[in-house]
């Protein structure tokens, strides 16, 4: 069964939810992701809220086959206030193809119940060459939901993958409720950008 099929099954069999790269202490998260470059399924476990360890299984869409990353994400800095939270993370991954294929990067976000801003920079090294993937994302919640409600975010994302594109800007729609999140983005050039998350 291919990763794409597995991702679709995952979406059908489990209700979809939520998006943080590290869970609470002892929590785990299952993610499915698809865009024009890859399909992936990523599971991570967080021994503490400061870091997570996981495995990501990937099918490259540009003809480079299947492989997996052993991934680690670290919360470098968090600032909590009464109405906001700001995070800065480091992440890295080593490919099952060997040490010569890996990635590392930094990303961060700031959010209130109404506003969201995030960025990411990732450098990836593969047998075919190196590339950078970076994005900026801004969002607004059209309504402020209470705990347990369906939450909706309207976002705009500017993304650049130096291996394939110049910058592209496209809208992103994000919904989450309880432990499930689904995020859709679409650009005529970048195609669908779909992110599904289930937190346990």
């Amino acid at each position: 069964m291919g990763i794409k099929t597995f991702t679709i099954l995952l979406c059908l069999l489990s209700p979809i939810l939520a998006a943080r790269p590290i869970s609470y202490s002892g929590g785990s998260t299952l993610m499915g992701f698809s865009d024009r470059y890859k399909n992936s399924v990523y599971y991570h476990y967080s021994p503490t809220f400061k870091y997570s360890l996981g495995i990501e299984a990937i099918t490259e869409k540009q003809g480079d086959g299947d492989h997996a990353y052993a991934r680690a994400t670290y919360l470098l800095n968090r600032k909590n206030t009464r109405h906001s939270q700001r995070n800065l993370y480091l992440h890295s991954g080593l490919s099952s193809r060997g040490l010569d294929e890996h990635f590392y990067g930094i990303f961060g976000d700031w959010e209130t119940r109404r506003w969201f801003a995030g960025f990411s920079y990732q450098h990836t090294k593969t047998r075919k060459g190196d590339y950078d993937d970076q994005y900026l994302q801004l969002g607004v919640a059209p309504y402020v939901g209470e705990y347990g409600d369906l939450h909706t975010w309207l976002m705009i994302k500017a993304r650049n993958n130096t291996g394939y594109d110049s910058w592209s800007v496209y809208p992103v729609l994000k919904f989450f409720k309880g432990g499930f999140l689904v995020e859709f983005g679409y650009h005529p050039k970048a195609e669908w950008d779909i992110h599904l998350v289930r937190r346990f």
Binding site: H83, Q85, D149, F176, K177
Partner: peptide, 13 residues
């Protein structure tokens, strides 16, 4: 609590 800005943040609590 400080930093409890979304459902997802509070789920673990």
């Amino acid at each position: 609590v400080l930093g409890m800005v979304c459902d997802f943040c509070a789920r673990g609590i």
